[in-house]
Structure formats: structure tokens, C-alpha cells
Design a protein around this nucleic acid. Structure first.
Lengths: 195, 195
DNA sequence: ATCATTATATAATAAGCGCTACAAATTAGG
DNA sequence: CCTAATTTGTAGCGCTTATTATATAATGAT
């Protein structure tokens, strides 16, 4: 055990609580008062453990990324391009309406537009969304090489289409759309996908 | 002319400037300092003319609605359901990347998630998005009655699909997607539409 | 001219923000 | 025990926020 007074709270649990607050209120909307109250700690403990509000958000964002990776990685490993699209869209419908956490997607509603103070957070989320798009695109390019997608298919275009539907579903979920409604959207969206 | 000292600024122009700020920074991200600077007036003039920040945002939102109505009304009046979908998606791609105003959609990036202070604004935007969805749905229901959509078509589901793609395109535009990329998304999305 | 009325600019208000001294409390090592 | 190291709770910091009091300026009506 390390020297000094031991930490009286669980960092992982506190981070989960912070993630929940950021998820529901966005980066700017979440106040330090909201955060410390939800985490059950006082400001100095927060700053000692996570640096500052921005550092806390970034760590919460990493944790959020891990949650998404759970189904995202599986989906991208589906054997066919169409299987990837199906798993992604259906998995997203499920994830966005999971009662275990707030509705919607942190990478979308965390900071779509912001003041100067949160500008770097906005850009960070933009970068992460671009990363997700790139991962789909790479997978579809591979599918085309493997002959899984037709020779005249446009992997980049299809990837952006899927990303667009996914992000649109996130907005829908934030607005209260049900899981059934999102599954219906996923089903319809798949009709535009070759295969 | 009314009695008293005449107003030294143009309300419509000031409102346009305010809309531009809200559009780029969101409701919470836009400070009164940002707004008064862009509008070229001092706080008392703003409060005398628009009530308060929330009142100013609502008036800016109305003005935004008028801008969108320009192409929405046309799109919904297209003779066939597929024509409606085409006009909506292509019009959205154009609107979201119009160099005359900020990228993206105020109803999406204005306040997707927020603190308690901006909660009523968040709900207001949610309501407006629901209204847009309802307008598409009503139009597609009519199309089904007119035999324009197949008997087994699901107007509500198709409407939500279109709304989802449109909102997803708004997120894409906020993230810097080009007009060409959005037009490509629109083209792909149309392949899921009957007709 | 004078008055009532309205807009303007300056400057101040209370409240909330992110953040941090400070001292007390709790541990391990000597 | 005592010391060094670390966390904790309280309390407050400086700053920004949205909003407004005040005095001045500019108009129409009388």
C-alpha cells in the first residue's frame, strides 16, 4: 500500500458517475457542482485524482469508448460487409437505448457546438467521430478487396452513410426515440446496403 | 413614427447576427458578450428589444425556421413520396453546407444535452424536431392513401428513417463534411426508399 | 420651449463558475 | 511515538455570467 492517507472513494466508480453526468448534460452543461455531487466527493479530491474538468471529461470519454468498443469491435469482425452493417446498426439501436445509461451518444451530444472554452473538447469529439468513420471505411475497403462488396461499390461513401445513420440515431435517441423505433430505422437503412 | 428616441439599430439585422452566433456556439456556448458584440449593440438595447437571452434565442429560432421552410415546404409539396424524399435529402445536403451561414442545423447543435438552465431550450428544440418528423410522416401517410406508396409501406417508419438521415447529416456537417460527401450520403439513403 | 417617452452608454449587480489555500485527518516508515 | 506523505472537508478565491440601475441623449406632442 502506498504511503499517505488512503483514498476514501473508488476512482472507477467515481469516473462512471462523472461519465453519467457528462452524458446527460454535455461538457459545458455539467458543472463541477453536478460532478462532485454525483461522484460523492469534494472538489480537491476531484482535482487531485483527475487534474481538472477537462481531464475528467477525457478520462470519462475513454471509459465511454471502452463501452462502445464492446459491440463495435464485434460488429467490425463480422464475416461480410453486410453483416458488419447489420451488427453496427442493430448494436447501435440497442446501445443508444440501453436503460443502464443515459440515452444517446456522448460523442455526439457531449459538445456539438460550444463556446471558446470548450472548443478543444468539441474538436476532440469531432476527431473521435472521424476515427469511427475511418474504422468502418477501412473494414469496407477490405471487404471490397475480398470481393465481399461488388467491384463498383464505394466503400468510403457507404461508410459515411452508415456513420450518418448512426449519428442520426443518436440524435433520435437523445430526443426520446424508443428502441423499437430505432431498430426499425436500422432495418430500413440496411435496404440501401448492397448484398 | 413612434414617440421617443428612435432605435439606432436594425432589429432584423441584429437578429440575424444573433442567429449566427447561436448557430455556431449553441445556446449555452453563446455568451451575452458574444451576442452584443456581434449585434453591435449594448446589453440594455438587447433586453429592451428581445426580453432576455432565452427570448432572443427563440426569436432567432423562429427566423431559422423560416429559412428552412423555404426548401422544406417545396420538398413536401413534391408530387410523389419518392420525390419528397429526394428533395428533402438533397435540399438538406445543400442547406447544411451553405456558405452563407454556419454549417449544420441549429435545431440539432443548439442544445442536444444541457444543464438545468438551458433545459427548456433543449426541450423546445426536441419539440421542433418532432414537428419536422410529424410533417414528413403526414405527407407519407397521404402518399400511401393516394397509392403513391405501396400498400405494405410503413409511412411512420419511413418518415423516421428520413428524419434520422437528415439529423445524421447535420452532425456530419457540424464535423466538417463537404457538400459533395453529404450529397453522396443522400444518394445512398434514397436507395432504401421505395419507388 | 417644454414635457413625456423611448433608446443609449456606462457601469454595477448578484449569482454561479472552475479552481485552490488551508488545516485537520489518516496512513507508512523510522 | 514521531515524521513525512497523502487525502479530506471547509471555505473562499478571482473571474465570468446574465441582468439591470442610472444618467444622458434624441425624438414627437403640446
Amino acid at each position: 500500500m502506498a504511503i499517505g492517507r488512503p483514498r476514501a472513494f473508488d476512482m472507477d466508480q467515481a469516473l462512471d458517475r462523472a461519465l453519467d453526468v457528462f452524458w446527460r448534460k454535455g461538457y459545458e452543461g455539467a458543472t463541477l457542482c453536478d460532478l462532485t455531487a454525483a461522484m460523492g466527493i469534494n472538489p480537491p479530491s476531484l482535482y487531485a485524482a483527475f487534474g481538472n474538468k477537462e481531464g475528467l471529461f477525457r478520462k470519462a470519454l475513454d471509459r465511454y469508448g471502452e463501452m462502445r468498443t464492446a459491440y463495435w469491435a464485434d460488429a467490425l469482425e463480422a464475416p461480410t460487409a453486410r453483416g458488419v452493417a447489420e451488427a453496427l446498426l442493430r448494436g447501435t439501436a440497442k446501445f443508444l437505448t440501453d436503460p443502464c445509461h443515459p440515452k444517446g451518444c456522448l460523442a455526439v451530444q457531449g459538445a456539438l457546438a460550444s463556446g471558446a472554452d470548450a472548443d478543444c473538447i468539441r474538436k476532440e469529439l469531432e476527431t473521435r467521430r472521424a476515427g469511427s468513420l475511418a474504422r468502418i471505411r477501412d473494414r469496407l475497403k477490405r471487404a471490397k478487396k475480398e470481393g465481399d462488396l461488388p467491384a463498383d461499390a464505394d466503400p468510403a461513401g457507404l461508410a459515411r452513410y452508415l456513420a450518418t445513420v448512426i449519428e442520426g440515431m443518436a440524435v433520435q435517441a437523445a430526443g426520446g426515440a424508443s428502441r423499437k423505433e430505432l431498430e426499425r430505422v436500422a432495418e430500413t437503412a440496411l435496404r440501401a446496403f448492397p448484398g
